[in-house]
Amino acid sequence: MRLKILNNGYKFGTKVLFAFIHLVSRRPVPDAARLVFYRPDFYGAPMGALTHLAMRGPSAWSVGDRELMAAVVSKMNACAFCIGAHTATAAMAYQDEAKVQAVLSNLETAPIEEPLRATLRLLGKLTRELAVNADDMRAVHSAGVSREQIEDALAVCFAFNTTDRLADAFGFFVPGQKGFEAGAKFLLKRGYQ
């Protein structure tokens, strides 16, 4: 990463934890985790609480749906680390890699339900154009998405519009497919906090 403090600036206990994770997983701690462990009271703890709530808290959307939303937002932001991480996690959650790849290749023709398609379209527009209007919301609602589901999706969108920016600004190392799969297993087991 671009800042020395994000590579080496951790308290002794955190360094021991990183060494333990490295030993058990046989992989270095991903940069996304290093970021949230750095001075966690400033960013990692409050943001982890929000991200965990958005991604694993109560919602009519499945975990796979929310991971797919994270992948779609990240693709719109062209964030290589987060595209890889959340494509792998969505594919593992759904047990269907083809579906995830189809959505990322062409949302309009992908084999998914219309409410999810309309919601992903909304998140794509919000991320690309930085704004949406009431007509966009009405279109999603008319596709069968409840107000609560729209709010849930917007919280996912916020979390990844933040994380994507930090991944690129701080220069997260982008691991290979095996690294992303190991991360996906962790995220499905433990979540984000």
Partner: peptide, 19 residues
Amino acid sequence: AIGAATRQYEAALDALEEA
């Protein structure tokens, strides 16, 4: 990063409220 994402989030919540 949080500021940019917040502007998007709040604009979308306002649009949802209006709808």
